[in-house]
Write a protein that binds this DNA or RNA. Structure first.
Ligand SMILES: [Mn+2]
Ligand SMILES: [Mn+2]
Ligand SMILES: [Zn+2]
Ligand SMILES: [Zn+2]
Lengths: 139, 139
DNA sequence: AATATAAATTGTAACCATTACAAAATTGGA
DNA sequence: TCCAATTTTGTAATGGTTACAATTTATATT
């Protein structure tokens, strides 16, 4: 637990979120596990600490976080949603072999957005898929 | 029906797909309706022609088309999958107001993919969301 | 402290797109 | 025509997500 409870409380308050027990724990989990976890990943970990935890609470919390823009939804997986506490602009690469999701930096400024000039762009989602270096090496 | 039956047959054969009745109809629909339809969109239209049509057949056909790389999956909508017969490299913009999905050209060559150098990239999916020009005008 | 009110959390059922799978229908060749 | 392979259908199951009312917890008031 690298991300301390006090930091979590402060962070939530700064983003206009009342720091409840579950919100603090979810935020800590996201800050400590930046590997784009699913709802189930988070639930399975937190149920250890909070035996009464409901999966609905994880959904509620993430929905709240999304609304406050402190997490981003990563829909690179067709089955279940993933969540990313890193809201800086970056792309995601999913390896079809090991299923790992890699972050990579992007430079959208010269991507070329002439066709949608005059549109308001709120979110840019960049999803790549293929085979990662590690998997290529071991084959 | 701009895309003729004979052209559809030829196209399917060229891509190693046996041209069955349903496959031909689905391909024609996709060629004539490039607005990224859902399974239900396709089903609702084709059921008019083929009263015995099963929705499973649409799923089967699209799964086959995906495997043969003649359609792309567009996952910009969180609820249901969309399909695109245009497999050329382009991005998708979804307007949160009118829900229309726009195509736009991209230039991934200067997007910056240094972080995943050495990876095999099979697919690039670029999803934007925001408000389109038309919706901005009428508000 | 006790009470009242609001907010957070839980539990359960429903939703619904997608998948699994076996039965039925169709196709094409011998 | 007969047979086997392929295609298509119908139905049930799956599973992530959502709706929502009940319960619990936090906060404010007296
Ligand atoms: Mn990320
Ligand atoms: Mn498109
Ligand atoms: Zn890999
Ligand atoms: Zn619009």
């Amino acid at each position: 637990m690298a991300f301390k409870t006090d930091s979590a409380k402060k962070y939530l308050k700064e983003h206009d979120i009342k720091p409840s027990t579950i919100r603090i724990k979810v935020l800590q989990y996201l800050k400590d596990n930046k590997h784009h976890p699913t709802v189930d990943d988070i639930y399975k970990e937190l149920i250890e600490d909070i035996p009464t935890l409901s999966k609905t609470s994880i959904y509620n919390t993430l929905e709240l976080f999304l609304g406050k823009n402190i997490v981003n939804l990563v829909s690179i997986d067709d089955k279940e949603s993933r969540y990313d506490i890193d809201t800086s602009a970056h792309g995601h690469f999913k390896c079809k072999s090991c299923n790992k999701i890699y972050d990579f930096n992007i430079n959208t400024s010269n991507l070329g957005e002439e066709d949608i000039k005059g549109f308001i762009i709120n979110k840019r989602k960049i999803y790549y898929e293929g085979i990662c270096k590690d998997c290529l090496k071991s084959s």
